[in-house]
């Protein structure tokens, strides 16, 4: 691990990190004003009506920053500035980044698990030694803890019927599961082709993987339309809607990022950027894609099936 390699590459000054910080700031500052302007009664201040524009500008700055940053690293890599040690820095960095992503999803999975295991039974009156929990008796009479939860405590109290239907597991979600699992398989074929210097297979199967990602996203969009239009299932549909859309939504966002990643990798494959010895970016993309895939498997089990 500590063997002597060629000199470690320490980049010269770069404007990109500072530009990235400005981009992040504009994005969230704009988003804050935008949210207030669109969902709040409170007048948000001098930048209120410009929130959307500021956010768009921030995102544009971020895209410019990312484009330039990755271009710079690709250039440096192609110019042979990176040693094996540098390669390892990138690999470790990517692994720990994915770990942090796992923990981000863990927060939402943890919320789902806590709600189903503790919060709902308590709201439904489960108590100690056969005594009903008082919050249930006083606050939410008539509420029954069931999952999927289609009648919220508030609706139960008002004697309302279920206002939406839940998403079944064996339609689109099952097809999407098959698509993502297949895409992990096609990506592995491509990766093997890369190591075996089989460029046509590499390029073809990387594109196929990216295409599967796009198909997945299309079906996911269809599912959302179906949920909103036919099932009445929305983000505001109690805790079921909250967990359903936040988990699948953040997953979809990650699939989007992963798909863009794969498209860029496909183009770079065509340009011959990768060699069997030197293809960190490709592996990083593959790791990211497998991570997204594994998260989906958990989603399918805990959000759709169970």
């Amino acid at each position: 691990m500590t063997e002597k390699t060629t000199k470690y590459y320490v980049p010269e000054q770069s404007k990109l990190p500072f530009i990235g910080s400005v981009g992040l700031f504009l994005t969230v500052f704009g988003a804050g004003n935008f949210i207030h302007n669109t969902t709040d009664v409170v007048t948000p201040g001098p930048f209120g009506s410009m929130g959307g524009w500021i956010m768009t500008a921030g995102i544009a700055v971020l895209i410019y920053m990312m484009w330039s940053w990755w271009s710079a690293t690709i250039r440096e890599s192609m110019n042979g500035l990176y040693s094996h040690q540098m390669d390892r820095s990138f690999r470790y960095g990517m692994l720990w980044f994915i770990t942090s992503e796992v923990m981000f999803f863990a927060a939402f999975f943890g919320a789902l698990w806590y709600i189903r295991t503790f919060a709902l039974p308590w709201l439904g009156g489960e108590g100690v030694d056969g005594h009903k929990a008082m919050t249930s008796v006083i606050e939410w009479p008539g509420f029954q803890a069931l999952w999927p939860l289609t009648i919220t405590p508030e609706e139960a109290k008002q004697g309302l019927k279920a206002s939406f239907e839940t998403m079944g597991a064996w339609g689109l979600p099952a097809i999407n599961t098959a698509i993502l699992l297949t895409s992990s398989w096609t990506l592995t074929i491509a990766h093997h082709a890369l190591i075996e210097k089989n460029r046509p297979t590499l390029i073809l199967f990387t594109w196929i993987t990216a295409a599967l990602g796009i198909i997945f996203l299309g079906l996911q969009a269809l599912e959302y339309v179906h949920a909103y239009q036919d099932l009445g299932l929305t983000l505001g549909s109690g805790i079921y809607g909250s967990t359903f859309f936040m988990l699948t939504g953040f997953h979809g966002l990650h699939v989007t990022v992963g798909t863009i990643f794969l498209i860029i990798l496909s183009i770079r494959c065509s340009k011959g950027h990768f060699t069997p010895e030197n293809h960190f970016a490709y592996e990083a993309g593959a790791w990211y894609w497998h991570f997204v895939d594994v998260v989906w498997v958990f989603l399918f089990i805990f959000v759709y099936a169970l």
Partner: peptide, 10 residues
């Protein structure tokens, strides 16, 4: 959403 709101099951 109702993650932290008991009225919605959170």
């Amino acid at each position: 959403t109702s993650f932290f709101d008991a009225a919605g099951g959170g």
